[in-house]
Design a protein around this nucleic acid. Structure first.
Lengths: 238, 238
DNA sequence: GCAAAAGTGTTGGCATTACACCCATGG
DNA sequence: CCATGGGTGTAATGCCAACACTTTTGC
């Protein structure tokens, strides 16, 4: 496998059809310094060598495209079970000037903890603020935008924001996360009220004393409780 | 072009990558007999010859994927400027048993008027209710479901429902359309109130007297008015 | 003692829902 | 004259947005 003549077509009533390169690109999102950021690498090939780029990889004949995206992300981050969603497939002829490549874009949400060290070296992977992105190769800017739009819609109807936080987090972290994703300020009291009323978080004894003198209680998302509510017809809605 | 060895790759640092078949499938939706329906054809190839299927086509090296989808729909319906949205890309290895094909699914919204005659012959294209779909080839049932979910979300935030109606339509047609898309009954008075308050429809002098003795006023969607409101920050929201 | 973040309730306005009767007409 | 779909208003409710002060503690 890996060779472009190797795709399987035993029956091949489609012998005459064109065969094309297909890749995946991943918008890896993380929450750092109270802000949603995207992980970019230095593009390794000419003529765009050194430009910033999303992380991607080609789809080969014996791998599902979702799996290709997952492998791409996991190889880069050394994480497993990363939350991913397909965003859109970009298929214009000229999107990659040098050749025809169809690319399916995904986003991945990762919790930034011990991660950074592992990934940083190979391609100079670094986090970039969404509101001051450097120029990216090909149509990768479009991809980032599309991913954020999709995340913004999804985050209000499903409790996926927690994927971006450590297991234990404070209310103000959660607030700032949502503010950053939605791109606007939220009222602290109204936000807390709404979250609390959902009854999806467990309040822990422990406090975070790093970011404030008084200390803020840690909370934890309870997946099981959510699944139970879900099966009773509950809809997360923020 | 059209031959699978013809894709352009002058630089080809990706010579060693696999080249795959890529197709599009289109969920063509129409509103008939007060119901949202999908247009299906009889699949023309063995071993699924005669089974019901979506309308599709292969992507060749010199056509954008969006254009491929559009051409597919327009060839089948003899319509132009059909409203289309990309839904999802299905890329599992085994989704087509006989060979690896990655398929991008689109939905198309068409207004069913003079259409039917033109398309019916070639592949026995016929309209099917969404709640009693026959078995479909491959993963086409999944595609239909995904398309309807996407439409359901979109139709509440953008005035695309009108794409499914003739230029002139009555309020009860519009109501039934939304009921059918959203899959639940809506209150006639509340619905009218909301629609009227948007101020996007022009009430015509003319009445539809076919479906009722008293006659119901025709309305028309005013695209320009909508665009103007849009540019002032207005958000359609139903 | 002060700076910095945490925590906590109430109110008014708006939007959504629920609900029922008369009208016009063709047959 | 009656059956069928068309057209219309009001009241109750719940939801969301706006808003400010006290607490804790490290420095």
């Amino acid at each position: 496998m890996g060779n472009f003549n190797n795709h399987i077509r035993p029956i091949s009533y489609h012998k005459t059809e064109a065969s094309l390169l297909h890749s995946v690109d991943c918008v890896i999102l993380g929450f750092l310094q109270d802000e949603l950021k995207v992980l970019l690498i230095r593009f390794p090939y000419q003529p765009f060598k050194g430009h910033w780029s999303l992380i991607g990889g080609f789809v080969n004949a014996d791998t599902d495209i979702d799996a290709t995206a997952r492998i791409t992300v996991e190889r880069m981050t050394n994480l497993e079970n990363v939350y991913m969603e397909q965003v859109h497939t970009f298929g214009n002829i000229k999107r990659v000037p040098s050749e025809r490549v169809i690319t399916t874009c995904y986003y991945a949400l990762i919790s930034v903890e011990p991660t950074l060290n592992i990934l940083s070296k190979e391609y100079e992977a670094t986090w970039h603020s969404l509101d001051k992105l450097p120029p990216l190769v090909y149509d990768h800017e479009q991809m980032v935008k599309a991913a954020v739009v999709k995340l913004r819609e999804k985050v209000r109807r499903q409790p996926i924001g927690f994927e971006l936080l450590p297991k234990k987090f404070t209310m103000s972290q959660l607030l700032k996360l949502y503010e950053s994703i939605l791109g606007r300020n939220l009222d602290k009291r109204n936000f807390n009220k709404k979250i609390q009323s959902m009854d999806l978080l467990e309040k822990l004894e422990e406090k975070d004393t790093e970011n404030s003198k008084r200390g803020a209680y840690y909370y934890q998302f309870e997946v099981e409780k959510y699944n139970q509510l879900l099966s009773n017809g509950y809809l997360f809605d923020l």
